[in-house]
Write a protein that binds this DNA or RNA. Structure first.
Lengths: 204, 204
DNA sequence: CGGTAACGTGACGGCCGCGTCATCTTCCGC
DNA sequence: GCGGAAGATGACGCGGCCGTCACGTTACCG
């Protein structure tokens, strides 16, 4: 009798489990010490694997970092963009994106810490990546909205930057609160941006 | 004849020069590799001092990091606050702060890179410091403005966070532009925040 | 069942950063 | 000038990380 079901092959199952263990440990390490301070050894230590095993899964620290980020950031971006796609008005567009983003932060503090702690490294490493890609997507969406006449003509790059930056910092403040009020953060951020866009339209 | 004037004593002059050399080299190293990846050795290497000499000036990497930050961040904070103090209206208050900040970024790209690259570490290390202190000052100023009735009653903490976050990201976008247009960034950031505050007042 | 290849293991050599210390240089006060 | 001390120097021992590799173990397949 086999206690553990293993139709997908036991070999493969172990492989997936090991990879997952490494990535999970790495997420914690990168979040705690930052990319520069992290060490392949430290990641392995938080695992019951041998040091040599690590290199069967990742060639080095940078690859591991990329893998960890992909899993986390990809998810946020996808969720935010999906939420925005359903918006029927500018207000919904802004609010939906913020709500999804703040909700994610509140639900996964470690992923948040990981991204916050390493934001500088991320930018330096991918130079326009993961998170920067989030900015790009927003910028593209804004340009489309401007074309469509929903948003007045203005500097989409700066506006996207402002929206993302505000989200990042408000997110930090929100996570510090107990319990984190996603709705309050969403409302404030949304209101500021809508009011700002309004006024930009008036001045332009 | 003495080529170099040295009334303050040659001993003392060398000491100041060495310290300055270390701090300057360190600024570059921290900006390039980030705190975690930086190394006392690497800093010393960019200096014509011996490794042992370093320890006559700083006990370790963290102390050095604190010294480097103090010199850079202190200046920005002081300039921004000074500019704000002279404001006679809300609009001037917001615009003056942003203009001073963006002006600083444009004038000292290395300091900017230093702070951006290590923002996560800074927050983790001082947990409410240098830059966080900037947020606190802004928050205090906002609360005062609310008391005075200049700004409608709203969540000063979140608003301060949004203002600072927007500044950080817009700053990144601005620095990428050639040449960096301080005025454009200032106008956009100011307009968004004023419009946002306006709308927040309307909704509250 | 037995052979095989895939995979986990951990010890190893090389390298590098750390902080110290004995030694030498150089400025200062007399 | 001269003696003394402040300070610069860089080699040193130690510890830790890196990536590899020869060896065991074990799932898979016929």
């Amino acid at each position: 009798m086999s206690v553990t079901a293993d139709p997908p092959g036991r070999r493969a199952a172990t492989k997936a489990a090991n990879r997952a263990a490494i990535v999970t440990a790495a997420r914690a390490v990168f979040a705690e010490m930052g990319y520069g301070g992290a060490t392949v050894r430290e990641v392995v230590r938080r695992t019951d694997l041998a040091s040599g095993t690590f290199y069967n899964y990742f060639p080095d620290k940078e690859s591991l970092f990329r893998a960890v980020l992909e899993e986390s950031a990809q998810e946020v971006r996808a969720r935010v963009q999906a939420a925005r796609r359903q918006a029927l008005s500018l207000e919904e567009f802004v609010a939906a994106g913020y709500r999804e983003y703040f909700g994610f932060l509140a639900s996964d503090p470690e992923a948040f810490e990981l991204m916050r702690r390493n934001s500088g490294t991320i930018r330096a490493m991918f130079d326009e990546p993961i998170f920067g890609a989030g900015v790009d997507e927003l910028e593209a969406d804004l340009r489309a909205a401007i074309e469509a006449g929903i948003v007045p003509p203005l500097d989409a790059e700066y506006l996207a930057a402002a929206m993302v930056g505000a989200a990042l910092e408000v997110g930090v403040a929100m996570v510090r609160r107990e319990p984190p009020d996603v709705e309050g953060a969403t409302q404030l951020a949304t209101c500021i941006m809508l009011g700002g866009i309004e006024r930009l339209g008036r001045e332009a």
